[in-house]
Amino acid sequence: MWGKGLINGLRITMRNMRRGPITLMYPYEKYDLPERARWSVVPVFDEHGDPKCTACMVCVRQCPDHILDLEITTAEDKSKHIEHFRYELGACMMCGLCVEACPFSAIRMSHDYELARTDVAALTYDLLTDTDAASARKNREPKPAGAAPPEGGEHSG
């Protein structure tokens, strides 16, 4: 009979009307991200509040979009100091290849998905000084990274 399918469709609609909402009232409610969720890259600091990064440059070389950049100065005693760890949030596609490659787990993918910025300049920043993780660490003078990286040699950004 013509129209049977239409009535059946209405029945399905009625059935769905009885169930509760499946949406969240964002931003009042927030979705629990799974552990592996990948959003912006954030640095990891050790228990002294120093960056774990040893400036080995592996992440810089791994990034398909070339958005990470490390500027390093080498002191006379061959110790390295990170001047600048540039991160371009606006161009980051959050593929996680830099985090996978990091031999020291010095960076990780955060669960911060509210990444809109009102200023374009705010999309490029220094991972070690301008992130929330950096400002939350203990307020102490960071030691220059003393340990020589196992690979990479001397690089400058």
Partner: peptide, 14 residues
């Protein structure tokens, strides 16, 4: 949601 839990992202899985 399932794919995000497995891979880390919803569409650009990598």
């Amino acid at each position: 949601d399932i794919l995000e839990e497995i891979s880390g992202q919803r569409m650009m899985f990598n």
